[in-house]
Amino acid sequence: MSSFFQLIQNENMKIYRKGANRIMVLMLLGLIIAGGLIIKFSGPDNTDAHKGNWKQELVQDNKDMEKQLKEMPAQSQTYFKKEIAINKYRIAHNLPPAQGENIWGFVKDMIGLIMVISIFTIIVVGTSISSEFNWGTIKLLLIRPVSRTSVIFAKYISSLMFAIGMLILLGIVSWLVGGILFGFADISQPFLQYTDGKVTETSWVMYVLKQYGLNCVQLIMMATLAGAIAAIFRNGALSIGLTIFLMMAGSTITAFLAKYDWVKYVLFANMDLSQYLNGTPLNDDMTLGFSVIVLVVYYVIFMIFGWLFFTKRDIAA
């Protein structure tokens, strides 16, 4: 009857015409700019470059780190080994390290804001579903020649589109702010990647995209959970509150349960896929493939429950 695209248009209209959601966009922009200004004016001054001496400095740093390395337990050594290897690579390939912050360093620092985008997305998906019930508009929404399945999926997809928009905004604005505040000079610098004891050069763009991708796993899982809770309980506060709480407490919960073998089946133990790229997974028999399967199973469960409750339950509000 009506195309799915038009339902998405409707949901987008409801998302972007709502004051609270517009404020979220402004808040993200504000956080990036504030972050840039704080780093710029409180960090070390990056103009006092002693450019000639950087190799000697790195050699000295490495000596210090190697000394410390001998005194520390094996599981804490990874970071120092990585730093030493990268310093050696810089010396060998004549790649001076950034003095203080630079454009890419800033983009990297701002990756942490994906957590904020996750929270915003949880709020958007939770309210998109629950407020139709709170407002009573659900009664006018569902008496159209459109299936309930299309309605809930339009809400889900439009919320994820909001997240994608925010991620693109984060990427572009943090790059621009980084460039404006710290200069565009280091744009073509390579990113030095340390894997399996070896240092390789990749582009910063690739590195940043990969980090965004890894962080999106949590974003998507949590947004889907929020949507499912909202569809099941029709309660925005519960959906948003519970999901954000779980997201924040996730790593604590995982650490608390680490002594049990079944912790590997806990959602939060599998959401950080970078544990496979940076070396040590939480549990020895966990692999990337295992985690992906666990994530898919949780995802499908969230989707099915959310969908079932939304499409089958009476509208009595």
């Binding site: 209209m13 409801k14 015409r17 709502k18 004051g19 407002w135 009573g136 508009t137 009664k139 006018l140 008496i143």
Partner: peptide, 12 residues
């Protein structure tokens, strides 16, 4: 139809 009160999107 209007079921009970005509609830619309107030911010639109």
């Amino acid at each position: 139809a209007i079921v009970e009160n005509p609830e619309m999107y107030k911010f639109l």
